[in-house]
Amino acid sequence: MQEVSYLVAAYAVVWLGLFAYLAFVVLRIRGVRTELAAVEELVREHNEKQDQHG
């Protein structure tokens, strides 16, 4: 039944590939959210400093 193993391999590649990619995307979104939060903090502090000196 070597043929079936090829079929399984093909489907496995697609499933694993797409799942792995989805995970990759989710991780990046999470990462950029964290970075955005951090940068927004920076912006807030920066604006506060501006208001103080302004």
Partner: peptide, 23 residues
């Protein structure tokens, strides 16, 4: 579905980069 996720990812990355540059 993935297009929406990636589009938002691009948007947020651009936003983050621009904000960072502004400070």
């Amino acid at each position: 579905f993935l297009m929406i996720q990636l589009y938002q990812l691009q948007r947020m990355q651009t936003l983050a980069q621009r904000l960072r540059a502004s400070v």
